[in-house]
């Protein structure tokens, strides 16, 4: 087991190297001279081409791509992700303050999605082709098709503008005031959770449908187990395995969706940090955000794979 975990952890290293290298190359190729991002305009104003080249040399911008990447990597390995070109803050500090916001948003969205989707999915599987099943399936397809930024606006319009039930924006840290924080998280969480809810609902339905036709379900019924016990004890546990996988795979979509949602609801999370940084070409911040989000995604999927082994004794990893 420990060997397996170590092997999986080692396998993430090349992925992270390639990901950061791709992003680094993109930034290298991006139009515009990076020197203007590092130096004030007044400083470069009136400099001759030769002086500019000297400045570039001083800042290391004339080195080949691979050397500059190696330089970034060397510092990154020591926990130094550079400083933001705007304000000069440490990128790692900015990420540290943004990370919990995005994680809270993602985790609450998962909880929301599961609480809604699993009961509906089970119901739909137990009564296939019923009205409820059709409604559930339509909801699921609708949930996948609705643009999340539009859902966000609909919810804000309904709950904040029309009904004045919830605040539409503003952010309070979880550590400062928990009720106020949760109140402001309701709409973002629902918006972000809808997509996952749709996938979980479909997966629960098809998983349950498949399991309910298995021999061991018939056996359980034959020995006189009550229907509720058959459904929840015998079928449910087995049907939940694919759902677990979906959560892992969809976690990336959640982190991506968070970029948009955080922007709309003005939440100071990683997505918003990254998006703002893209617009002003704050390369160190962009690189840091991509690194942390990718790392979180890979970690969650590793955890899911390990849980899989715990939940299903048949596929204990060797």
């Amino acid at each position: 087991m420990i060997q397996y975990i170590i092997r999986r952890l080692l396998a993430t290293i090349p992925v992270l190297l390639i990901v950061t290298f791709i992003v680094f190359t993109l930034m290298f190729m991006a139009p515009g001279d990076p020197i203007y991002l590092l130096v004030d305009v007044e400083q470069t104003d009136g400099l001759t081409e030769v002086q500019m080249d000297a400045l570039r040399h001083e800042l290391g911008l004339d080195r080949p791509l691979i050397v500059q990447y190696g330089d970034w990597l060397w510092h990154a390995l020591q926990g130094d992700l550079g400083t933001s070109i705007r304000g000069g803050r440490q990128v790692s500090d900015m990420l540290k303050s943004a990370f919990p916001v995005s994680m809270e948003l993602a985790l609450l969205s998962i909880v929301f999605a599961l609480v809604i989707a699993i009961p509906i999915g089970i119901y739909a599987a137990l009564k296939p082709n019923s009205f409820g099943d059709l409604l559930g399936t339509s909801l699921a397809i609708g949930g996948i098709s609705a643009p999340n930024f539009w859902v966000a606006l609909l919810l804000v319009y309904l709950f904040a503008v029309k009904l004045s039930l919830l605040p539409s924006s503003g952010f309070v840290r979880f550590s400062e005031d928990i009720p106020a924080n949760l109140e402001r998280m309701v709409l973002p969480v629902i918006t972000l959770g809808i997509g996952l809810m749709a996938s979980v609902m479909r997966m629960t339905r098809s998983g349950m449908l498949e399991v309910m036709h298995q021999d061991y379900i018939r056996t359980a019924r034959a020995k006189g187990a009550k229907e509720g016990r058959v459904v929840f004890k015998h079928a449910f546990r087995n049907a939940m395995l694919p759902v677990l996988t979906i959560i892992g795979l969809q976690f990336g979509a959640l982190l991506g969706g968070a970029v948009v949602i955080e922007q709309i609801f003005s939440l100071p999370g990683m997505g918003r940090l990254g998006l703002d940084a893209i617009f002003i070409r704050d390369f160190p911040v962009v690189q840091g955000v991509v690194l942390v989000i990718t790392l979180s995604y890979l970690t969650v999927n590793l955890v899911v794979d390990l849980l899989y082994g715990l939940l299903d004794p048949r596929i204990r990893v060797s």
């Binding site: 390639i18 791709i22 979509a253 991506g256 969706g257 970029v259 893209i278 989000i293």
Partner: peptide, 21 residues
Amino acid sequence: RVMDALLSIPSILLMIVIAGL
């Protein structure tokens, strides 16, 4: 390997990064 790496970045994020840059 490169394809695996591309798949491990959330797609919307990657699109934003590429389009933005």
